[in-house]
Amino acid sequence: MDDRVILRVGAKFLIPFILLFALYVQFHGDYGPGGGFQAGVIFAAAFVLYALVYGLPNAERAMPPRVVYICSALGVVIYAGVGVVTLLKGANFLDYGVLAHDPEHGQHYGILFVELGVLTTVFGVMVTVFYAFAGRGRKDG
């Protein structure tokens, strides 16, 4: 188990950085490559790493399947919800311009929220899918 210790310590050290990096990718998407999708994948990668090192049950305790399941549905709701808000404000669907007084600011907010929706769903789906696959493997193994 000794080699595992190194792994675990390493992982513990790494995971916060991965999460931080994900946030960077999310919010830096406006200026450089990246965005909700990539951030979601990296976010999910952190938990996949956690599960690989600490085992699936521990990962499921840290990030319950129920939560990631809700996340995967929630992201779609957030994305489409932004569109519905713009509708309610009297503009076309997903016309972010009305989200603020200044259309450019509106676009900013809109993109921020929809990217958040993408992040949520992608993170949720990736972890869900990983749990499903890993769960099958465990039962068979």
């Binding site: 406006d30 200026y31 450089g32 994305y79 997903l94 809109g110 993109i111 929809v114 992608v122």
Partner: peptide, 23 residues
């Protein structure tokens, strides 16, 4: 749009609907 990354602009705004479909 006001953000430098054109890909993000197109992805999330001009063709934001495709991205919703992708999600």
């Amino acid at each position: 749009i006001g953000i430098p990354n054109i890909v993000t602009s197109v992805l999330a705004s001009y063709r934001g609907y495709d991205t919703m479909g992708e999600t």
